[in-house]
């Protein structure tokens, strides 16, 4: 018997629990050249801001031990071009479309989200209140309970479909921030965004990123992400989308056991763009072997001491 891979996030059914992470798959066009996007549970776009952004000067990525740093700086086409040039493509894809929304002020989140509310191709939005790479806004919202609640509540008024709040790990208590996002009206959480980090060249004494610091991602952060997913799971009843270093089927299973209903693959796409497709297939084999009929039965089942 083929295991049931379907999961539901805030009433939206996904064909399987694997999504691409924001900032790691553009607007989907490049991956669509490699495989049908219907193989993904959902596609999460690059962060969209009100105005187009070129991002930070290069170098804006740096390799680290089992991971990488990035300070792309929310490079994106802006909401006008996104709607005009990218939405028509996304509307044709047979997958759930989640648009990541970023801003430097609450008004910007609201305006972008309101524009997306008029686009039926957008199934959900993910609020990036946790980007470590912009000087203004971004992580500031997600590091403060009051601002988190305010920004989610403001967007809630203009966006009628599900809102996922993307939470920052760069906080004292991620569960407290999750509470605030839920209070503001979030329907789900994605946990975690990248960890603030840096790296320095010992010859030039220069940071390896022109932004001087960036976000650490990849397998190096997986243990941190798992603990944070579990902390949010134990606090809140809202569904969690787990993110952080997922590269194999066993990584995905760990996230589900810790409380994630779905997972996003980010940095691993840079090593192997087929990663989410492979994970879905290999998870099926695992579930069959374990005689588990549905992937969702794994959620939160970690047997803690």
């Amino acid at each position: 018997m083929t295991p049931d891979m379907k999961v539901t996030i805030a009433g939206v059914e996904l064909a399987n629990p694997l999504m691409t992470a924001s900032g790691c798959c553009g607007y989907g066009e490049e991956l669509a050249n490699l495989y049908p996007l219907s193989k993904l549970g959902a596609l999460v776009t690059k962060s969209i801001t009100l105005k187009p952004r070129l991002g930070h000067p290069v170098p804006r990525t740096a390799e680290t031990a089992s991971g990488m740093l990035n300070a792309i700086g929310l490079a994106n086409v802006g909401i006008d071009d996104f709607i005009r040039e990218k939405i028509p493509f996304l509307a044709k894809q047979k997958t759930v479309v989640i648009v990541n929304v970023a801003g430097s002020a609450i008004d910007e989140y609201v305006e972008v989200s309101a524009r997306l509310n008029d686009q039926p191709a957008v199934d959900m939005i993910e609020l990036n209140i946790s980007c470590p790479n912009v000087n203004e806004g971004g992580m500031e919202f997600g590091a403060n309970s009051r601002l988190t609640e305010q920004s989610v509540a403001a967007v809630r008024k203009v966006f009628s479909r599900p809102i996922i709040a993307k939470l920052s790990p760069n906080v004292t208590s991620i569960a407290d921030i999750a509470d605030a996002a839920a209070q503001g009206g979030a329907d789900a959480f994605s946990v975690i965004n990248s960890l603030v980090g840096t790296s320095v060249d010992v010859d030039s004494w220069r940071p390896r990123l022109t932004n001087n610091k960036g976000g650490l991602t990849g397998p190096a952060i997986k243990p941190v992400a798992l603990a944070m997913v579990n902390a949010v799971y134990e606090r809140s009843r809202l569904p969690i989308v787990g993110i952080g270093g997922i590269a194999t089927w066993s990584d995905a299973v760990e996230f589900m056991l810790c409380g994630a209903t779905a997972m996003q693959v980010g940095t691993a796409l840079f090593i192997d763009p087929f990663t989410p497709v492979k994970i879905v297939n290999e998870m099926k084999t695992y579930l069959k072997k374990k005689k588990i009929s549905a992937a969702r039965d794994l959620v939160g089942k970690v047997r803690k001491y």
């Binding site: 900032g23 790691c24 991956l31 290069v58 170098p59 490079a75 940095t267 796409l269």
Partner: peptide
Amino acid sequence: EAPMPCGIGICLGCVV
């Protein structure tokens, strides 16, 4: 030439 994490246009790390 540029350092390029993904090589397929999805990471935006190698822009000029």
